[in-house]
C-alpha cells in the first residue's frame, strides 16, 4: 500500500505544487523518487516527530497540503499532542501517514506495531481516519485526502490487490465487496483479504457472507452498517487493531444506538494486549486470531447461537 500511496502522491505533486511531503527519516527505497523529483516539496525532518508535526502545521498554515510520513506509532502516538493541538484544533490541512498498520513489522515487536492508533486518532475532533484495505483503495484514498481539506490520518498496511477494477471510493462510504444474507463481515486496514478468503470457505458450507470494506473509520458509514445488519442480523468486525475503540467500537456504537432488534455482534481483533510472542506478521496473525481459518471458526461458532 505504501508504494501505491507514494506513486499516487508523486503523480499529484507534479501538478499540485501545494503538496508538501515530510518524512520522519523513514521510507528507504520508497521516497527517493519523490525527493529527487520535487526537492522543493520534500523535507526529511529527522527522527523528531513532534517537531515534524509542528512544522507540518506551520507549513499548512501558509496554504500547503502537508503529508507527514513515518512507520508504526511514530507519526501518531509519539506526537499525539501536536496532532491534537497544532493540527486538529486549528483544522490545519495536514495528512498523517503511518506505514505498517497492525502486525506488519511482525518480528520487530510491539514498539513497531500500531494496534491502538485507529481508536486514539478517531477520538480527535476534526480528524478523518482512513485505513485502506488494498493497494487500489490506498491509491484512491491518497487522492481523496488531498481533495478533502483538514486533518486526515491514513493508516497503511499490506494486502494483495482485492479490487480488480477501481471501486467508487468516497471518504465515509463503505464498499460492499461481496453480498450475502447470513452474516456481515466489516473489515478495515488490510483485513479484507483474509475476510474474503474466509467468506469463500464459508460459502462452501452454505454460509453466505456479506463482506464490506470499511476503509473509513471516521466518519463511519452508518447507513451501510445499518443496512447490512438489517439484512443479515449478524455482524462481525475484523481489524488488525485492538478491539477497543477502533472499527469494532465504531460499529458497535452505531448498532447500539440505532438497532431496535437484537442482532449477533462480535469484534475480531487484538484482544487488549501487546504481542507477547515474537514472529512474522503471519505468525502473529495466527497467534491473535486474524487468519481466514480463525475467522471461519469464530463465524461458525457465532452462527450456531443465532
Amino acid at each position: 500500500m505504501r508504494n501505491a500511496f507514494i506513486k499516487t502522491l508523486t503523480e499529484v505533486a507534479e501538478k499540485n505544487k501545494n503538496i508538501f511531503f515530510i518524512t520522519g527519516d523513514l521510507g528507504y527505497s520508497v521516497i527517493e523518487d519523490f525527493q529527487a523529483q520535487f526537492p522543493n516539496q520534500f523535507l526529511n525532518a529527522g527522527v523528531a516527530e513532534q517537531n515534524m508535526t509542528g512544522i507540518a502545521a506551520g507549513l499548512a498554515s501558509t496554504g500547503k497540503t502537508v503529508f507527514t510520513y513515518s512507520i508504526g506509532n511514530f507519526p501518531t502516538l509519539r506526537c499525539l499532542e501536536q496532532i491534537r493541538s497544532d493540527v486538529c484544533y486549528h483544522n490545519h490541512n495536514v495528512k498523517i501517514v503511518a506505514v505498517g498498520g497492525g502486525f506488519h513489522y511482525g518480528a520487530l515487536a510491539s514498539t513497531h506495531h500500531p494496534t491502538e492508533d485507529l481508536a486514539i486518532l478517531r477520538s480527535l475532533p476534526n480528524m478523518t481516519v482512513i485505513a485502506p484495505n488494498d493497494p487500489i483503495e490506498a491509491s484512491l484514498a491518497t487522492k481523496a485526502v488531498i481533495k478533502k481539506r483538514g486533518p486526515c490520518y491514513l493508516r497503511l498496511s499490506m494486502s494483495k490487490r482485492i479490487h480488480q477494477t477501481p471501486p467508487d471510493f468516497k471518504i465515509g462510504k463503505a464498499i460492499t465487496v461481496r453480498e450475502g444474507n447470513d452474516i456481515s463481515m466489516i473489515t478495515t486496514g488490510g483485513m479484507l483479504e483474509p475476510a474474503i478468503e474466509a467468506a469463500e470457505f464459508l460459502s462452501k458450507e452454505n454460509i453466505n457472507v456479506e463482506v464490506i470494506s470499511m476503509h473509513t473509520i471516521k466518519p463511519i458509514d452508518k447507513e451501510t452498517i445499518l443496512k447490512t445488519a438489517q439484512k443479515t442480523n449478524a455482524v462481525v468486525t475484523i481489524e488488525e487493531h485492538t478491539i477497543l475503540g477502533g472499527l469494532g467500537g465504531a460499529v458497535a456504537e452505531i448498532l447500539m444506538e440505532n438497532m431496535s432488534k437484537r442482532i449477533i455482534f462480535q469484534r475480531i481483533g487484538v484482544n487488549d494486549t501487546f504481542a507477547k510472542k515474537i514472529g512474522s506478521r503471519d505468525f502473529l496473525r495466527k497467534e491473535y486470531g486474524l487468519t481466514p481459518e480463525t475467522i471461519v471458526e469464530r463465524v461458525k461458532s457465532l452462527l450456531s447461537n443465532k
Partner: peptide, 18 residues
Amino acid sequence: STGSLGHGLPFACGVALA
C-alpha cells in the same frame, strides 16, 4: 493557539520554512 508548552517553535519552523 498555545497553552501547552513547546508547540510554538516547531510550528514557527514550518512557517519560516514555507
